[in-house]
Amino acid sequence: MDGIVSRIKGPRSLGASALNEPLWLKRVLIGVVLLFLGLFLILPLTMVFYSAFSEGLAVYYASITESAALSAIRLTFFATLIAVPLNLVFGLAAAWAITKFEFPGKQILITLIDLPFAVSPVIGGLIYMLIFGSQGWFGSSLRDQGIQIVFSTPGIVLGTIFVTVPFVARELIPLMQSQGNDQELAAITLGASGWQVFWRVTVPKIKWGLLYGVVLCNGRAMGEFGAVSVLSGHIRGKTNTVPLHIEILYNEYQTTAAFAMASLLTLLALVTLGIKTSIESRVAKEMNEEIS
């Protein structure tokens, strides 16, 4: 970033007017951007925390520790704890297959991995209703055996897994493509086994991308609304995740409690962004060190 700024300032003597916008235009552009981002990002952020604490700390604390809230938090953690590791393993396997080998249909595979991003989350919920719902393919046989998937925890877990499938793979594929296979090939030539190469060579090389993918995956898993909403059946204290609990509270005009729960997820989002920013600056620093 600094390089670009200093380069712009450099040739000012050449005739700055053609290399730089006039000062008034700069100010107008910065002003418009600040207004836009203030209106769309800063103000909503402020609003969440202001509303959450508007009735004081005691009400805030009570809102996030009542039993329905706690069971929503537990269910959210449970679904996330299953979805994130599964999609982490999937992301590693997919990135390994795609970046280490040539095979026909690779481009199609990359596109298919992105599918859960391309379809509406509501459709992500719908497809599991079609399979496991009461009128679904396995609906009646599951009911006979007393197994409930939709309107129950397994359905919520499935919906969460579906919407978070691409996150880790999407981070790793471009990263591993740009890094190439030279170090892995060297390790194999020196007699390392496949798993040794994976753990000792590849994982250290991709650790930041991996961490970033997991953080994004985790954020989405905890915050997913559409798919989970379709699959949950909204049974209070039983099949409500944190976002669904927020919806119920808000629709019941318990605005402060809704924003108290929302502030927890907002905090999670801010932590996610913080980790992202620190990973980016760390990677940039490592790259600079390698160059110099």
């Binding site: 600040l34 909503p44 969440v48 609304f225 927020i246 929302a262 997820l265 989002a269 962004l273």
Partner: peptide, 24 residues
């Protein structure tokens, strides 16, 4: 700070964005 915040709509759960915009 603003540069980092640009990704907020990615990271913020949609339900939170929904109730916040609606209230605003």
């Amino acid at each position: 700070l603003l540069d980092a915040l640009v990704d907020l709509p990615f990271a913020l759960p949609t339900a939170v964005a929904g109730i916040t915009l609606c209230s605003l």
